[in-house]
Design a protein around this nucleic acid. Structure first.
Lengths: 325, 325
DNA sequence: ACATGATATTGTCTAGGACATGAATATCTC
DNA sequence: GAGATATTCATGTCCTAGACAATATCATGT
């Protein structure tokens, strides 16, 4: 992830006439802004500085930290590598170039090339800011494949490709956001017909607090919709006790939770054990999303679904075990 | 907001066998969990304790704070009152009962009673967890009124009514979430037909980082869609520089930002000034959402739209000033 | 090769002090 | 008395530096 000047420019927080809290001087960010933009807590930023000697922000007249954009950019790269399993101690002692190598190795080349063309087509439209063209293109593939195959075979790898393109500096963050938004429109419109399904099992969908991404949840929903199952989504960032109460109120058979890669695995394990202990054994808990691959130990009573295909398999399995009453 | 035992029960974080970070012992929350659930930062929680003597959490064997649920509940009430303009110094010195009075006074009675019936109908369905019934009911009103009137005259007051019902303890948080999710489905399906609009002006929609609610953004979108304007949404939590870059890339005439009541007004002002200074004067900035009423001073070059109706008026105004080329 | 124990790593918590911004209040002038 | 300006108060965020628990890694013994 080489930091080109243009790229930095786009990330420049603006000279705020009087604001200290959020923004700061043109080319530097205050600690709260860095927390926002990197997802690393203030405590972590400070303790890394103490322990590893990075980042080393400048200071304003008041002794407060001011992070140069170059360091913020590097922190972002580090965070991403951590999200895919690396440990901070290693990463923080690496040189700039070693980091770059690691980042690019991350972008493993796609195996099949059939999906390559689609990905190029999509990325091209995103880069050209042709949102309606993008939507049409996605819709066509959706119709061709059907919702489930579209989600499993096209959308999942596509999301990875988009993230990788962003890491290579080919896409801006806002382009990624705009892509996600259009994808959402496409998926939601395809899900509308099955909004009134009534067959078993009954799903409750949500993400935990601190989860930023909503796409994983939506993909789960899109996968379940054509199965005709009943699902109720609570949306993102639902406190644990609320999930428990909702599971009871909606009489859910399965509580499905989505976790993106950036979710703290520590917190995830704690939360899952927490939820598991409040809702009855008869209610299953399924967990999906990028995080799963990083979860070492199993959590008793919680079913990890490492991929969306796994999730469908688990659903079929459930139906075998629970023949209609 | 009387804290009934049942209500507390629902809010109970679960005895986690080994988790300290997120959850804690049955009836108590660790500081990070309180931060999550109340939206008050750890710093604020600690400094309030020091200065005002509330909250006064217990301590675990390790000297770490453990907040009883009753205090968390009270903190939530305080936060809500702050969101509607009260100052912490006053609120924190109030007794339990005084807080209750203030909370209930908050719920000003609806003026017209015509909307009262609809609200009762909706709340009844939400409480009965009849999500498809709710969706149907909302859809009927949507068809009756048309999207724009539905949003302005029905959804906006309805959202307030739901929040108030929650404050009175008539609705659980998860019920509010489920409601929001269904509303989203209804609104999005109504917006689909106008997804390919091409007429002027060109909108860019987003919320800033730290914004939790996505409903305000969606309502803005729903209002704009029938006008045939072109809009691109970047979704929630978009960093300022990204918004700026996107405004340029999409050649936006107007950048519209949504702020919920719980957004820090300090941060909002700083961010808006920040954005204003990076994008060209010719690109307008419109701001909507509950927060607006709490903003004291004007921000030069930023148009506040205190209500959704205001926003439509502003749009008409813009069109007068910018006759099609 | 695999289980067990020792060590290192890492994130989060604690305390109390400091300061800048914005709100509220007092003072001055007309 | 009204309005402008200065002063005091209120409040959130930041600071340092130490501590500890949970996990990951490594080493040892079987």
């Amino acid at each position: 992830m080489q930091v080109t000047p243009e790229r930095m420019n786009l990330l420049t927080e603006i000279p705020a006439t009087s604001a200290t809290t959020t923004a700061s001087i043109a080319s530097h960010l205050a600690i709260s802004a860095v927390e926002r933009d990197t997802g690393l807590s203030k405590d972590v930023l400070r303790v890394w500085e103490r322990r590893y000697g990075f980042p080393v922000p400048e200071r304003d007249t008041n002794g407060e930290r001011l992070y140069p954009l170059s360091q913020v950019e590097r922190l972002r790269a580090i965070k991403r590598l951590m999200d895919s399993g690396h440990r901070p101690g290693k990463l923080l002692s690496l040189s700039e170039s070693e980091l770059d190598t690691l980042s690019s190795r991350q972008n493993r080349p796609r195996r099949g090339d059939e999906s390559g063309d689609l990905q190029r087509q999509v990325i091209e439209r995103v880069r050209g800011h042709d949102m309606s063209g993008l939507r049409q293109y996605l819709s066509i593939w959706l119709m061709k494949q059907g919702l489930q195959d579209f989600v499993v075979e096209t959308v999942a790898p596509l999301n990875r490709a988009i993230t990788e393109a962003w890491m290579r500096g080919e896409l801006e963050v806002f382009e990624e956001r705009a892509y996600a938004e259009q994808l959402q429109v496409v998926l939601r419109s395809a899900m509308l017909p099955s909004v009134n399904s009534t067959s078993e099992p009954r799903f409750l969908l949500a993400t935990l607090p601190n989860e930023v991404s909503s796409l994983g949840l939506l993909m789960m929903q899109a996968l379940l919709a054509p199965e005709g199952v009943q699902y109720t989504s609570l949306g993102t960032q639902v406190p644990i006790p609320e999930i428990a109460a909702a599971a009871k109120a909606f009489d859910a058979d399965i509580v499905a939770l989505a976790f993106s890669a950036s979710f703290s695995s520590k917190q995830a394990v704690a939360s899952l054990e927490s939820i598991r202990s409040v809702i009855p054994e008869s209610t299953k808990i399924w967990v999906g999303g990028e995080l799963i691959r990083r979860l070492r130990r199993d959590i008793p009573g919680v079913t990890p679904t490492g991929s969306l295909a796994d999730m469908l398999a688990a659903l079929r399995q459930w139906r075998v075990e629970h023949p209609a009453a």
